[in-house]
Design a protein around this nucleic acid. Structure first.
Lengths: 344, 344
DNA sequence: GTGAAAGCGCTAACAA
DNA sequence: TTGTTAGCGCTTTCAC
């Protein structure tokens, strides 16, 4: 049903090369006559011609597709960013091959290898973050790449990040400013740049306000709902229960909510909460959630922009850009004002 | 840095064909000696061999990738289903090329064309639904395909659906059973199978309980938050305001919530709501949301399963499967019991 | 057991 | 202004 260049060539009595030139719009460059051009174009239409991207990619060593590696595409944050990336990439003529790693480093390596096989022109990676050797490899071989949302301190890569340190500092300081001193933090995946930065911001805010860091209040190990649930359960049953919890990712927040309501506690009244990552639903929760909002659309667009620049630059020694965006505290009602209570 | 078959052939002094046979695991079939096999395998490793999927695909006319066409990947429902599909496809040896249509039929046609160019082995499509000619085309040319979440009455395709009629009937009947008679429905995209079915279920439930259908109460035109917001605003300001609203998709629900709280109304007390599509956040909303839950994981897995069966069947006259799954009503607290109020 | 060679559909350097 | 041809990396038939 679908035809190839040779079919059109035969049909029109012209050569394959001429047909190729016309269907690729190189008519000017090769000074193809209008007659020939029209003939070929209508034949292409007639014969239902569809270019074969595999053949084209093989020949040109360009597939016009980019590989997206994401930890969990069902997580609202990643889902949103993925949509932005898809849209922007598509409008720039690139398709997206999407790979989910489920936060597994082995899966991540495997997926990258696969994408390499598929001949993607570049990568946008939201890495698991606990290991970087395979990313370094990519870097050494000069594959166009940008790291998104998470990066490695030790690696000089293109990256688009949110200022995790600042976001975390702001969130913690907000709590402190409302009189909280017993503040817990539930962290995501250990030993990653993102987690380290968020922890650093938390600690620094406490220290700056002369609050001693309580290691019992620093918990968590990954980004799943269960982690949020378990750690919140733990915190709520501590002898000296914290007055506030800082959840460092949206799925952790869901787990925390689950645990809090299960314990029949009221948010704000009994326990305050501030979340990293804002959600569409945040304003409509029982206790509208005070949250750190990340500029998701900008992150997505910026990542594609950077990647395309990288792809289209021939110099391998192109400067790498590290773009850090500022998150924003959205104050709602999930944090109690302990100062008022003290006065009463 | 990366090598090809010819490099290994040269390195080992063997021929390209032998190398190909070994790296593809056809050693038995061709009775390759163990010595040769080991030699080649270690050379492949040494030289960092990576198969070129483009060349392979060109030769075999199989790309081991499948095209996923989705209306809005940032919508939690689609995001979740996409993750399931990605995981299952990957574990079956297939990559996913993901295309977002933003509910635009033109975009959908374009994306399908593009996927065809890329030589995908099959399609999983969640179609916009207002037009089917391009899908029919695919069908005629015998491309493996399954329609997911939405389908066309007129087309005999593989499809995995939720029983929209029943879900809608159940939701509406639930409202009626609690004494509601003025029930509005906010619909998604017009003239699509899904919307028609949901409307049909709503109407039938009303009719079965001798409630006259009020056309003022049937509103909505697409799946965006704004649609939910605008239509809810409209409904709430009607002279005879409905006592309950049935929102037929999760983004519509978000918009409805926004409008309701903006009008300073209390859910349940002032206005009841039941939603099609359950959300992680639903239990933690100000008014925990009564919702119709769709079996998302099953839908995703089933779609891949069906597609792989289609891909691997050589007979073009393979029976098409239409799988209809049952949704489930999750009762929470967003619907008031009007019967009690009447008694009081 | 292994190799030579054709060809998948396309592009571009070179020729005319 | 158009055509001839080599070759991208791979699989597989046919030959030995």
């Amino acid at each position: 049903m679908t035809s190839k260049l040779a079919d059109i060539a035969e049909y029109t009595g012209l050569s394959i090369s001429t047909v190729s030139r016309v269907v690729n719009g190189h008519t000017r460059k090769y000074r193809i006559s209008d007659k020939t051009k029209d003939l070929i174009l209508s034949a292409a239409n007639e014969l239902n011609y569809r270019p074969n991207a595999l053949a084209r990619g093989l020949r040109l060593k360009k597939s016009h597709s980019i590989g997206l590696v994401v930890p969990d595409i069902s997580n609202p944050f990643f889902a949103f960013v993925t949509r932005i990336i898809q849209n922007y990439a598509h409008s720039s003529g690139y398709s997206l091959i999407v790979c989910n790693t489920d936060e597994s480093i082995d899966s991540e390596k495997e997926q990258i290898e696969l994408l390499l096989s598929k001949g993607v022109d570049g990568f946008i990676i939201m890495p698991v973050g606990i290991e970087s050797a395979h990313i370094e490899e990519l870097l050494k071989e000069n594959y166009p790449m940008v790291l998104l949302d998470r990066c490695f301190e030790s690696l000089n890569t293109n990256s688009v990040l949110v200022d995790n340190y600042m976001g975390s500092y702001t969130a913690t300081e907000h709590l402190i400013s409302l009189g909280h001193r017993d503040i817990a933090i539930i962290l995501g995946l250990k030993n990653t740049y993102t987690t380290n930065e968020r922890l650093r911001g938390y600690k620094k805010a406490l220290e700056d306000h002369n609050i001693i860091v309580n290691s019992n209040y620093i918990v968590g190990k990954d980004y799943r709902i269960e982690n949020g649930y378990i750690e919140t359960k733990f915190l709520l049953n501590l002898e000296t229960r914290p007055s506030a919890i800082f959840t460092t990712s949206d799925l952790i927040t869901v787990g925390a909510l689950k645990a809090i309501y299960e314990e029949n506690l009221k948010i704000s009244e009994d326990i305050s909460i501030v979340a990293f990552d804002d959600s569409e639903f945040a304003p409509f929760l029982k206790s509208p959630l005070t949250a750190i909002r990340q500029p998701k659309e900008i992150m997505g667009e910026m990542a594609v922009k950077l990647l395309l620049a990288d792809i289209n630059s021939n110099k391998s020694d192109l400067e790498k850009s590290k773009i850090v965006l500022k998150p924003k505290l959205i104050i709602r009602e999930s944090v109690s004002d302990k100062r008022v209570l003290a006065v009463i």
